[in-house]
Design a protein around this nucleic acid. Structure first.
Length: 483
RNA sequence: GGCGCUAUCGUCUAACGGUUAGGACGGAGCCCUCUCAAGGCUUAAAUACGGGUUCGAUUCCCGUUAGCGCUACCA
């Protein structure tokens, strides 16, 4: 039975890299009919925030990804400390009474002599250790890394293969802080053991920590889970993604706010560091679940390609356009409406549904609906230059002739788009203008711009009254200007 | 500094010793077309460098270089 967990620490917003880790775990769990666990790793009380927790829930809710079990590490402290104390009791960990050594206050450089552990503390007699603890002297509990000559820790990573590291390169890491609060390593392993996690799928930044974890699992007498480390997501400059440096692209909510479809986002992110081994790029959620295996995960970091001009990876945007295009209009329309409304447009449900098929293949982000379809919802068209009404190789007189003819037709014709179109094509012939010369002035009159959805469907949706009125206004504009 | 990991078009990636090094996004061009899209076709664009091993290396080994990660009483 597969049991996997996503274990974010609530310090910040839901990062795209974290979201990807969740997605990979989730896909793996669902593919294997296993259990997905969400565990909040909040042992570092000082850095946790409520907002951050909320943003994790918010992001996952948007993605529509679920989990089967939920835990909060801070509520499981007893489990962690008791395992730490158990290890002390068995001589596998020890109390260290030395003052904290941090990088800035003179800790020995990693690799330098005396870096791995403080022999004085490591070899303290049981009696003295107990006495000093009893006297209230503060201490941290450190793992006693085996120091046999030639000792090596090994494990097999599902992505990176056989891994090994000499124990002489592993320090006696802390398990419990002097405050008694467990460290990440302790809490994480104790929980992984207790929750019977079978596969640990996480960022590659934990690869080097894994040797410590293997040691801890073994010391606790627990089976060592399978590991799969994921290549990291990085910025175009090669740096890791940070909100301060790279802006909103790193936050999941900004994808939502720009109008990505959750399924498209998942599709895009799944393809970063994983591929289905065939040429498919567009995969829906079920297809991803069916195709996902750890064997398809690759080893090198993936760049999310964005810039000031293009705030989102062009491939993500393209993929989103594909997902939008494939979505039934009835499902898309309700997702479009909020973007229209927040732009101050009155987005009547029925009208949005009627407009949707006309713009579906013209938008790549949901928010594009505003710039593409605003004129459907505007009472009064935004002002445009009357010169726009003049067709190619035509002049003001031609525009006027065309518009006047259109004005008559629109008032009389049967108001369905094939009928409108054939009437217009016949009129073009009658007026001795090309179809394009006939259509352009009308398009501008009705949409207020040269680039728009197909003319006749647009007119049909707009309705007779509005269309006639707008063409009339265009005639007025043209007459009122000398061009 | 020490330890670990990685290295194919600009970007995401395929090719588990033998391919004209494939696909996708983006770029360029053409076609389709009432504009814009969408779609179709064509095209430019990559194996970091140097040594091995091999009849034959993108692929295996070593070194160099570069990037990333870990090296806390952060996670």
């Amino acid at each position: 039975m597969v049991r996997v967990r996503f274990a974010p620490s609530p310090t910040g917003y839901l990062h795209i890299g974290s979201a990807r880790t969740f997605i990979f775990n989730w896909l793996f769990a669902r593919h294997n009919a296993g259990t997905m666990i969400l565990r909040i790793d909040d042992t570092d009380v000082e850095r946790n925030t409520r907002e951050s927790l909320d943003s994790i829930f918010e992001g996952l809710a948007w993605l529509g990804l679920d989990w089967d079990e939920f835990y909060r590490q801070s509520e499981r402290g007893k489990l962690h400390t008791s395992l730490a104390n158990h290890l002390v009791g068995r001589g596998l960990a020890y109390r260290d009474f030395a003052p904290a050594r941090t990088a800035d206050d003179g800790a020995p450089e990693a690799g330098a002599a005396g870096w791995l552990f403080n022999p004085e503390m490591r070899e303290l007699s049981q009696g003295e250790s107990d006495a000093r603890a009893a006297s209230g002297e503060p201490f941290v509990i450190r793992f006693r890394v085996p120091r046999d000559a030639g000792g090596v820790v090994t494990f097999r990573d599902a992505v990176y293969g056989e891994q090994s590291k000499s124990t002489s390169d592993i320090e006696d890491f802390a398990l419990l802080r002097s405050s008694g609060v467990p460290t990440y390593h302790m809490a994480s392993c104790a929980d992984d053991i207790d929750l019977k996690i079978t596969h640990i799928i996480r960022g590659q930044d934990h690869l080097a920590n894994t040797f410590k974890h293997v040691l801890l699992f073994e010391a606790a007498g627990a089976p060592v889970p399978q590991f799969a480390h994921l290549p990291l997501l990085i910025a175009p400059d090669g740096a890791k993604l940070s909100k301060r440096k790279h802006g909103p692209v790193v936050s999941v909510t900004s994808y939502r706010d720009a109008g990505f479809l959750p399924e498209a986002f998942i599709n895009f992110v799944a393809l970063l560091g994983w591929n289905p081994k065939d040429d498919r790029e567009h995969l829906n959620r079920d297809e991803l679940v069916a195709a996902f295996t750890l064997a398809g995960v690759n080893k090198s970091n993936a760049v999310i390609n964005f810039s000031e001009q293009e705030p989102f990876d062009p491939k993500a945007v393209w993929l989103n356009g594909q997902h939008i295009y494939k979505l039934p209009a009835a499902q898309l329309a309700p997702q479009l409406a909020p973007f229209l409304r927040s732009a101050g447009l009155e987005a009547d449900e029925g009208k949005v549904l009627a407009v949707t098929p006309l713009i579906q293949e013209r938008i790549r982000l949901l928010r594009d609906v505003v710039s593409v379809a605003d004129f459907f919802f505007l009472e009064k068209l935004a002002p445009y230059d009357p010169a726009e009404l003049i067709p190619q190789k035509g002049d003001r007189a031609m525009a006027l002739r065309v518009l006047e003819k259109a004005h008559q037709l629109l008032a009389a014709v049967e108001f369905i788009h094939p009928a409108i179109e054939s009437a217009f094509r016949a009129a073009a012939e009658e007026l001795h203008v090309k179809a394009g010369q006939m259509f352009l002035p009308v398009r501008v009159a009705v949409c207020g711009r040269k680039n728009a959805p197909p003319l006749f469907e647009t007119i049909e949706v707009l309705g007779r009254e509005v269309s006639v009125q707008r063409v009339g206004e265009a005639i007025g504009k043209l007459q009122g200007t000398a061009l």
